[in-house]
Simulated assay, not measured.
Amino acid sequence: MSSSASEQKFVKTNLRIPSKIPGWNLDAWKYLPKAAGSQPRGLPIIVMAHGITANKLMGLGEYAGEFAALGYGVVVFDYRRWGASDGTPRHVVYVSEQLEDYRTVVKFCRQQPEFDPQRVILWGSSFAGGHVVTLASEKELNLTAVVSQCPYLGHASISPLSLGFVKTFMKGVLDILYQAVGLGPLYMPAVAHPGGVGLMTTPGSYEGMFGILTQEGIYPNEVNASALFEFPFYNPNATGGNITCPVKLIASKQDNLCPYSRVEELARLSTQVEVHEVPGGHFELYPGMPHYEEGLAAEKDFLLKRVPPN
């Protein structure tokens, strides 16, 4: 379905959702299907967020519109410190905060009359794809289903040893020291060319990230340098055997940021996991990229099968 066609089938409004920190609100978009009428009730709800250093302006509206047109309620949000959400210092990655923000939005949605509190679906991409897999193992969340595309599931691809990698590592250490004495954060580029200083420097990362932008100025390309050390201690697959709901993984076979081998491992760990494999690299599943339509179709099929709107 084209964007222009789907736009006729949903209503979009803005939300400000209180986060766990008083005074810090999460900026969100709410999508409701027009077919549900002016006062919908009991819609299954899809909660969505983007990957590391990205924000909801970077293509998430395309997915949300498509899902709403099928009959789902959708809430798309930015994490604290990112996008249009509150929080300082800006552009700092804390995995624990991002997981908590997902839980906060789920709780908020369950309290809204237009949504069915017993039909909650999480959607995540890249780093958020790991978040939703992690949350799928939390029995107390009582999730109905999870969709995770090009997910980070632990053991990120490591850049080869180079002067750029050494500089990146040292900058990460300095950021830890700076923040310990209240001087941080120390920033570096989120994406950079191979051999450069940055969080993601595998071949194609710079071109891929900027290739999914729909307009200039929506991606700051900066992150606290110590975000580098969030990866070794974050392993969504560690609790994969405890997944409590159906999970659909849309995974790129030649992904050089989030290795496909981790997808295969998760599928072995849980019978709840279904995998749809596509060729190509990490960024090829996003709107405007070669495998967006195929990935989106697989996600829709899964949702309609596992959590039909009516």
Rank of each mutant, 00 (worst) to 15 (best):
E216K: 15
I243Y: 10
A156M: 13
P160N: 12
P220V: 11
V146Y: 08
V95D: 13
G281L: 05
E294K: 06
G37T: 03
Y102V: 07
L304S: 00
F165W: 08
M1F: 01
L174K: 12
I46A: 04
P259A: 10
G288H: 12
G208C: 08
A5T: 09
V76G: 00
E62Y: 04
I218Q: 13
D78L: 06
V132Y: 08
Q111C: 03
A64F: 04
P194R: 07
F169W: 11
R268G: 12
N142T: 03
G71Q: 06
G196H: 11
L99I: 07
H91F: 09
G198V: 06
A145C: 12
E100R: 10
S261W: 09
L296K: 07
G42H: 08
R81N: 11
V166E: 02
A238H: 15
K300I: 09
G61H: 04
K20F: 11
L183H: 06
C109P: 00
L304F: 06
L199V: 03
L60V: 00
T104W: 06
P309R: 07
V223I: 14
F10K: 02
P290M: 10
S261H: 14
A225K: 03
M48Q: 07
S252N: 14
A227G: 03
V181T: 11
A251C: 13
G295V: 00
M200H: 14
Y152N: 06
Q111V: 00
V191A: 10
A227N: 00
P22Q: 13
P246Y: 07
I46K: 00
L135G: 03
V147T: 06
S252L: 09
N221Q: 11
V132I: 08
Q179T: 12
F77T: 01
A128H: 09
K107T: 11
R41L: 04
K20I: 11
V95T: 15
E138N: 05
T201I: 09
T144R: 13
L249Q: 01
K167S: 03
A227H: 02
R103S: 06
E265W: 03
V278P: 00
S159N: 12
P194M: 07
A136Y: 02
G241Y: 04
D175S: 12
G87H: 07
T168V: 02
L269W: 03
